[in-house]
Design a protein around this nucleic acid. Structure first.
Lengths: 252, 252
DNA sequence: CGCTCCGTTGAAACGAATCAATGAAGGTGG
DNA sequence: CCACCTTCATTGATTCGTTTCAACGGAGCG
């Protein structure tokens, strides 16, 4: 409730014109003609700020310039689940192409800077340029792949909660280093699909074993873990029992 | 092992020319010029037949004309998970646009008829026509949405195994009727991420309560359940405990 | 007819959820 | 500047659900 902040936290300051990343994603040498009146604006969000609410009419898509954003989706019974996290360079709500209402609620984790692109503008460009379309298609496929990766790695009791937590932590690595995005306990629980208390226990255990240690932290937001990646990878590889009995023979 | 059948089970008989569905997906009035030499061929697969293996080089995409296909993906520890099922009208491995190796292993559940489209052909058409590209993009986004839907509904211990099974069964409805695709116990377990034995127990319970009954069955393949949809929807709506305490306030 | 594969069912062991209490951290106001 | 308050993380004891092990029954097939 402390975080029920207004949709757009920071003021839009400056246009997308100088946004190299924008060009990078939508196509390098595409002159979008998005000048002063294009409507695309940069916004800042603080920890917990919501970019948009699920089920609301889509008015814009968001290009993430920095920070990470959690995409929350509600199940039929009201339980909320984080189905994906957006990182720098990702586009939120490409789905606007096939839907007029938001699929998820998007919430900033840490400080986020995003370029807000009005949906008409986005649709126009997508419809108008085969090059942009291809980029967007590639993005969408990458998203699909990651969603499926999460599905197969992070869920299901085939692997223990500890194994899945190790995998999640590896998924949240900043780049290739040993720094890991430190989400709240409840957030990690909402991804892996286990109880927050259990998450806490596992994190504690990892810390006792020195697989994890607090990295540089300045505020409530923007926190990191420092991890023993090799050790986590070992745990992530752990099997329930026999090598691969169940579906090892893929044809079933 | 009984099902380790050759990649292409049935013989290709006939061309895609007469395939109305093909046109439906890739664009109604698109003249693909896929005549005799187009390379697109219809193939039939029996229960358990594999369309293609994960990690193999992508040589074709598959348009499903009838039947259902399970997409199996392996986790880091070798455990296999069904991340999606394809139904009539779906395209397998759109990912070929961004990847040169198959993401999944695709296996027929029941009798399947699929149009095999060589990947060069597919890529050429996608690159060449903005209209086709848009269709493919839409398909990809639909797939993404469904994957996320599975993720949020079918996984995680927030909901009991019984609840998730009810949801899965509802996901497997043939159309809007009360007929449900009857997968094998192991298959359902591989989707929901629980033990096959537990699945059996739950299905048994549903049958005892008459929420489920065997529908028309002729062979080992192509089986259906007949379901009390309303009852299943009730169970699917069931909550773990308090209405929505955990993340009810989406900003967390 | 006997084989194997799949589904079913029971009893016991384990893991994770739950309840509940304590502790640390940040923010606010005295 | 310190005390208070709220929020979030931690930890223990207990309960519950699911997994596991194992045995049985039925269906399809050689």
């Amino acid at each position: 409730m402390s975080n029920t902040s207004p949709p757009t936290q920071g003021a839009g300051f400056g246009d997308c014109l100088d946004c190299e990343l924008y060009g990078e994603v939508l196509g390098e040498n595409v002159s979008l003609g998005h000048g002063v009146d294009s409507g695309a604006r940069i916004h800042d969000y603080q920890y917990g700020g919501v970019l948009y609410q699920a089920a609301a009419p889509v008015d814009a898509v968001y290009f993430i310039r920095s920070g990470i954003v959690k995409m929350v989706k509600a199940g039929p019974a009201g339980e909320q689940r984080i189905v994906r996290v957006l990182k720098t360079g990702d586009i939120a709500e490409i789905e606007s192409i096939i839907s007029d209402t938001f699929e998820h609620t998007a919430i900033a984790v840490g400080t986020v800077r995003a370029c807000r692109i009005p949906v008409e503008l986005f649709r126009k460009h997508v419809a108008g340029s085969a090059q942009i379309q291809l980029r967007v298609l590639q993005k969408s496929l990458t998203d699909l792949r990651e969603a499926e990766s999460w599905f197969s790695q992070l869920t299901g009791n085939a692997a223990s909660a500890r194994t899945r937590m190790a995998r999640l932590l590896l998924c949240l690595r900043v780049d290739a280093g040993d720094r890991i995005h430190r989400l709240g306990i409840a957030d990690m629980a909402a991804i892996v699909g286990i109880n927050p208390v259990t998450v806490s226990r596992i994190i504690s255990e990892f810390r006792r074993q020195e697989f994890l240690s607090k990295g540089g932290l300045h505020a409530t937001a923007q926190r990191y873990f420092r991890a023993n990646v090799a050790a986590l990878e070992n745990i992530a590889r752990e099997m329930p029992k026999s090598p691969c009995s169940d579906l090892s023979d893929v044809a079933n």
